[in-house]
Amino acid sequence: MDSLRSRTGVSVEAIDLHFQGKPGRIASFLIRHQGGAMLIESGPGSTIGGLELELRRRGLAPGDITHLLLTHIHLDHAGAAGWLARQGARVYVHPRGAPHLIDPSRLLESAARIYGDDMDRLWGECLPVPEEQITTLEDGDEVAVGGIGVVALDTPGHAEHHLAFQLDDICFTGDVAGVRMPHSGVVVPPAPPPEFAPERWRRSLAHIAAQQPEYLALTHFGLFLDPAEHLAALRRGLRAVCHWADENVPRAADVTDLQARYTDWLEAWALEQGLDAADWPGHQAINPAWMSALGLRRYWKQKQG
């Protein structure tokens, strides 16, 4: 499904950014209003060309984006925010994320430690966002424009600076609703360091469920019509990965061994849940198991005090 209308008739279009030239990996969501358009998620700097192309196909230019709402500041979700701000967009983000948009140097240094020489290829350029173009959002704050209102939901667990957004009966979930390939029923929780916090994550899922959405809009990837089943599957996934960490982190010989163990286990687990083997490379591209292994290791160490 590429588009739908909310309960009050607002049109939402999923824009496939074709991350690394592949479909179905990173989405932005376009919401038109009387004075232009709102975008939820910018995608990374490496997909700016794809975003421009998809906007042109819809009769829009980057300067028509008046409002950019970010679920969180990880580069796959927010890397192109500075570029869109240069086109005139106002950027909305969690208060904890705003300083890293204004000065992304620490964010980029942290990412570079993980991705090394692949930084530019994967994420492209990440420009700063001028402070005067940023609005921070707390839980329950509304972004209203052109007769459309979108409500921010504070949803930590994947990251402390994570928001979801509710538009009528549609919830835009960033990463807090996990990763799910198009036409698949398997939901995998991404657990990158440093902020994987499963208890807070479960409370965030309850917060989303309390909004009674009819649809979920996932950055990775697409529009889904089964919120209750999806959230239940994610809760099972969180239990499974936490149990795996408790059993396996202390047994691993080193970080490399841990990453190999988790990659093998996660692939086998996902296939047991019904994942099509052809979808596994997509999961690895946007939610690499070797990186989640580092988040699970940190989570386990924090549990030990």
Rank of each mutant, 00 (worst) to 15 (best):
Arg202Thr: 13
Ile208Cys: 09
Ala206Ile: 09
Pro194Gln: 03
Leu205Cys: 10
Gly222Lys: 07
Ala217Glu: 11
Val187Leu: 05
Thr155Gly: 05
His207Gln: 14
Pro192Lys: 01
Glu195Pro: 05
Leu167Pro: 01
Thr173Ala: 08
Val188Arg: 08
Asp154Lys: 04
Leu223Cys: 08
Glu195Cys: 06
Ala206Trp: 13
Val176Asp: 06
His220Arg: 05
Pro193Asp: 03
Ala206Tyr: 14
His220Val: 01
Arg200Ala: 13
Asp169Gly: 04
Glu195Leu: 05
Cys171Thr: 14
Asp226Asn: 13
Gly222Val: 02
Arg180Ser: 04
Cys171Ser: 12
Gly147Trp: 00
Leu153Glu: 10
Ser204Pro: 09
Pro193Thr: 01
Glu214His: 14
Ile148Asp: 11
Ile148Leu: 10
Phe165Tyr: 12
Pro213Leu: 06
Ala164Ile: 02
Asp154Ile: 00
Ser184Arg: 03
His183Gln: 14
Pro182Trp: 03
Gln166Thr: 05
Glu214Gly: 15
Leu167Thr: 02
Cys171Gly: 11
Val186Glu: 03
Phe172Asn: 10
Gln211Arg: 15
His207Arg: 15
Ala159Trp: 00
Gly149Arg: 13
Leu167His: 03
Ala197Gly: 10
Ala228Asp: 11
Glu214Ala: 15
Gly174Trp: 02
Arg202Met: 14
Ile208Ser: 11
Leu205Ile: 06
His161Lys: 07
Ser204Val: 02
Asp154Pro: 01
Val187Met: 05
His161Met: 11
Phe224Val: 04
Gln211Ala: 14
Pro192Val: 00
Phe224Arg: 12
Glu229Tyr: 13
Ala164Glu: 09
Leu218Ala: 02
Ile170Leu: 13
Phe196Cys: 04
His220Ser: 03
Ile170Trp: 08
Ala152Trp: 01
Arg180Glu: 06
Met181Trp: 06
His207Ala: 12
Ser184Val: 00
Cys171Phe: 09
Thr219Gln: 12
Val150Leu: 11
Leu218Thr: 04
Ala177Trp: 11
Gly174Ser: 04
Pro192Leu: 00
His207Lys: 15
Ala164Val: 02
Pro198Asn: 08
Trp201Gln: 04
Glu214Cys: 13
Val151Met: 14
Glu214Leu: 12
Ala191Trp: 00
Ala164Met: 06
Leu167Cys: 05
Ala177Leu: 10
His220Ile: 02
Ala210Gln: 14
Pro193Val: 01
Gln212Ala: 15
Val186Gly: 01
Leu225Asp: 15
Pro189Gly: 03
Cys171Pro: 13
Val187Phe: 08
Leu205Gly: 05
Ile148Val: 13
Ala210Gly: 12
Val176Trp: 04
Val187Trp: 07
Pro227Asp: 06
Pro194Arg: 06
Glu195Gly: 03
Arg203Gly: 07
Phe172Asp: 10
Ala191Ile: 01
Val176Arg: 02
Arg200Met: 12
Thr173Gly: 08
Phe221Tyr: 13
Val151Ser: 14
Arg180Ala: 02
Phe196Ala: 00
Gly157His: 00
Gln212Pro: 10
Ala159Phe: 02
His207Tyr: 13
Gln166Tyr: 03
Arg180Trp: 05
Asp169Arg: 09
Asp168Lys: 02
Phe172Gln: 10
Ala228Gly: 07
Ala210Ser: 15
